[in-house]
Design a protein around this nucleic acid. Structure first.
Lengths: 99, 99
DNA sequence: CCGACATTTAAGTATTTAATTTAATATCAT
DNA sequence: ATGATATTAAATTAAATACTTAAATGTCGG
């Protein structure tokens, strides 16, 4: 149980949390827990514009947290890293008990 | 395993992650996993000024993540919320495997 | 090809965050 | 009380983020 997290790891984890620390991105990740969803799908659940949802998706995609699949003229987004699912699950258990 | 996290919860969790998402604050929390430490102690482990460490501690204290105890002319800081410890532990397991 | 729809990109502005420097407060030892 | 150390507070500057609007790209159906 040492505290021997390398500087590199600290930077990495901090960057990861930073990406997840925006309410809209957090909501998006939660919504993608079970389903693949498009910008339009997400936009109807999150109170902002399509352009803004798209921007947040780009941020998540650049950090490899989600991946996208194009089909016809829709783009389906999904969680790309299972560890994100575990992390969200842990946080829900710890901080959203009444559920 | 529903995705029924309330808006309120999303906001709360996002704010929490945001507080943890700065490398110096992340490092501070890790260092406080095992010990109570002063500004000076922390400063020697983190490459920045005492004033800057103090500022970050204030941010963490305002979010109830750490608590402080004054003794003589030192102030000892400790983790105030065990869930933070669990969260850090989970993140270490998930994202810092080689350890 | 044209129009409708889904998504992305770009530009511009506003807001937030971070770090540095400097000054202030408090406690101890002498 | 004086000086030394530890911590906090305030103010400034610099930098990163976020949102809006409008234009651009790409794909389908007719």
């Amino acid at each position: 149980m040492k505290n021997d997290m390398k500087d590199e790891d600290v930077e990495h984890v901090a960057a990861l949390l930073k990406t997840m620390s925006h309410p809209i991105r957090m909501r998006i990740l939660c919504l993608l827990q079970d389903n693949e969803l498009t910008v339009g799908d997400l936009r109807s659940e999150v109170k902002t514009s399509n352009a803004n949802v798209s921007q947040h998706l780009t941020i998540l995609r650049n950090k490899q947290m989600i991946a996208s699949r194009k089909e016809a003229n829709y783009i389906y987004n999904r969680i790309a890293d299972k560890r994100i699912l575990e992390l969200i699950s842990t946080m829900k258990n710890l901080f959203c008990p009444a559920k």
